[in-house]
Every structure is written in structure tokens, then in C-alpha cells.
């Protein structure tokens, strides 16, 4: 079998090398597929369903970008990444976009040379404990065993939190969310800590979700957002404004149901017109056609729809909008204007 592999390596290397000089947008168009990095499986955010089709909140963003750029929301190759591999995968160009509930931090943005293009979920780190433990505050966890996913900011926050409160704990490092879930359910750790959204998602997969509570303390700010490589600003703009388009669409009341109707002719609201390309030439400015935002919204819905469908209160995950409500509803979502 020796030569075939060589051949494979050569063809792949050759093909990739041919296109490497061009910008990410051209790469994606040439390939006809968007390579999108997601988690290895976190229900509600990104997980393959029984048929192997990826679904979730982060997945929807990948699909929206694919719809805007390629006109097909299914033209996405999902690359599962772990805490360890995600940044290498992005830096090496294996993926064009990382949408893996990654926290926007100073050093990741600067030292690791990535560009966070926005925030699609305002999160914070919380603790999940069994009700039977009788704990009502994270500060009562003195001496507890805590399961923690390695290679994440949560690990550092955890150390800071316990040090600041001068209480001790025993960290049990685990590699993936699946393992953390097993260890926690087996009782090998008293508490499992990660982003509150991740905890809700994990708890939703339990047999008896009601036996477990998420403690009220949120010990950190975890703004999660998609990121791209540093230096390709055109591509960064496309991802940033696709995200903003979804947020703006919700603010303006554009949904997947009415987007086709609104886009068929210029309406009364000029911002909707600009967003959907019936007025102005915003699409052209980011090297796309005028229908780009319409396609993104039509394929996955606006931000609110994505949220409700994947992680909202009606889903097993059951997250409320909270900080992630529109600014008009008292939340933090505030998209810059389309103008």
C-alpha cells in the first residue's frame, strides 16, 4: 500500500500548495466547501445527530457563513477539534473558521495571532453539582474534587477562584466533555466546572437532569466567539458581518420565514433593505453578491431563531436568553449598524 499513500500525500499537498498563496475567501470558493472547526461533541452547540449530521448553535454560524459565501448551507466540512488541537488546526489552515465556544482573551487574540470577529454567546464559568451534595454556593466547595477540562480558560479561572477565596480543591483533569460527564456521573468528582452553557448542555444529556443543579456563582466572563487567522482581514470581515447580520436580523424582525418576502422588493425600512441587498451595495464591499445576508438568514434563521432552536428554553438544554438578549431587551447583543 506504500505508494498510494505517497500519491495521496503528493496530490493533496500539491493541490493545497497551489492554492495556498490566495486569500481564504478564494480558497473556500475554489474548494466549494467551508472547513469549520467545532467541538468534538457538545449537545446544542455542535454535535452530530444519529445520522452524522452536525447540528447546534456553533454549527449554525458555520452554515450561515457557508450560505453567504458559497450559497449552500450544507457546503461545510465540520472538523472536530479538542482544546489542544483547535488553535493548531486554525493556524495551519486546516480550518477556515473556528466556531468552538472559544473564549475571547487578550493573549489568544494577540500572542496566538488570531482574530476574534465577534461574540456569539456571552457565557461565564459555573459549577455543576449533584443535589444530594447539599451545596448551595461554590464557596462551600472547600476540599472538593472538581473535574475540569484541560487546555481551556476554565482551568485557569478555577485556580484563580479557589486561590482568591483561599479554599482548597482537588483538580481532576479530563480531556473531553464526554469524559468529564462520565467521571462526574460516576461520582469520581464532586463538581464539574465549565462554561455555564456547557454545563446546561451536559446536564441535558443526563438520564435524570433534575438531580443536578448549577450553582449560582459565575466565576468568570467567558465571551465566546468565532475566530479566524490573523492577517486575512477580508475573510475576517465576512465572518464578522455574517454574525452581525444574524443579530441585526433579529433586531429588525427579519426571520427565515419572512426574509424571502422582504428581500423580493425594497421595503420601508432602509436598514433592512441594505441588509438584504435591495438597496446599496454592501455585499460588493466584502467581495460577495448582494444576496449574501439573505441566504445566511434564510438557511439558518436569525440569531434568535438559532438560539431557540438549539439551546433555547424549549430545548432540553433550556438556556434563557439572559445576557444574550438583544440590547433592546436589556441584553448585550448590539450589532454595529449596516450602513
Amino acid at each position: 500500500m506504500k505508494k498510494t499513500v505517497f500519491l495521496g500525500a503528493l496530490t493533496v499537498a500539491g493541490l493545497a500548495a497551489g492554492a495556498s498563496a490566495a486569500a481564504t475567501l478564494d480558497d473556500v470558493k475554489a474548494r466549494g466547501k467551508l472547513n469549520c472547526g467545532v467541538t468534538t461533541g457538545l449537545v446544542g452547540f455542535a454535535a452530530p445527530d444519529a445520522n452524522g449530521v452536525w447540528e447546534g448553535f456553533d454549527v449554525a454560524l458555520c452554515r450561515a457563513v457557508a450560505a453567504a459565501v458559497l450559497g449552500d448551507a450544507n457546503a461545510v466540512e465540520f472538523v472536530p477539534t479538542t482544546g489542544k488541537t483547535r488553535f493548531t488546526a486554525l493556524a495551519s489552515g486546516e480550518i477556515d473558521l473556528l466556531a468552538r465556544n472559544t473564549t475571547w482573551t487578550f493573549s489568544r487574540d494577540t500572542d496566538l495571532k488570531f482574530d476574534f470577529v465577534g461574540i456569539n454567546y456571552y457565557d461565564g464559568q459555573g459549577f455543576l453539582v449533584p443535589k444530594a451534595l447539599g451545596v448551595s454556593s461554590a464557596k462551600e466547595l472547600d476540599g472538593a474534587t472538581v473535574c475540569i477540562q484541560t487546555g481551556t480558560t476554565t482551568e485557569l479561572n478555577l485556580a484563580d477562584f479557589f486561590r482568591a477565596n483561599n479554599i482548597s480543591y482537588e483538580p481532576v483533569p479530563i480531556e473531553t466533555n464526554a469524559e468529564g460527564q462520565q467521571q462526574y456521573l460516576a461520582g469520581a468528582c464532586d463538581s464539574y466546572t465549565t462554561d455555564a452553557s456547557g454545563l446546561a448542555s451536559t446536564r441535558a444529556a443526563f438520564e435524570n437532569p433534575g438531580d443536578h443543579v448549577i450553582l449560582p456563582e459565575i466565576i468568570s466572563k467567558e465571551p465566546l466567539g468565532p475566530l479566524v487567522r490573523h492577517g486575512d482581514n477580508d475573510w475576517g470581515d465576512i465572518v464578522r458581518w455574517t454574525l452581525n447580520a444574524l443579530i441585526t436580523a433579529e433586531e429588525l424582525g427579519v426571520t427565515s420565514a419572512n426574509v424571502n418576502e422582504l428581500a423580493s422588493a425594497p421595503g420601508s425600512n432602509p436598514e433592512i433593505n441594505r441588509l438584504l441587498g435591495t438597496e446599496g451595495n454592501l455585499g460588493e464591499m466584502i467581495s460577495l453578491d448582494s444576496d449574501w445576508a439573505k441566504r445566511a438568514i434564510a438557511s439558518v434563521g436569525n440569531y434568535g431563531e438559532v438560539f431557540e432552536k438549539n439551546i433555547g428554553e424549549k430545548t432540553p438544554i433550556g438556556l434563557s436568553r439572559g445576557l444574550n438578549a438583544q440590547w433592546t431587551d436589556g441584553g448585550l447583543l448590539y450589532s454595529p449598524p449596516f450602513r
Binding site: 489568544r108 500572542d111 483533569p173 480531556e175
Partner: peptide, 21 residues
Amino acid sequence: IAVGYMDVTGTLGGITLNQTG
């Protein structure tokens, strides 16, 4: 690293690598 024992692969090759990149 498969069971979370903090040997040199777990610290230097695991968490340190992840945190510093």
C-alpha cells in the same frame, strides 16, 4: 494523559502546551 494522571506528557505536553500555544 488518557486518565488524567499529571505526568510530564500531561503537564508539559498537555496543559502547558494548551495554555501557551
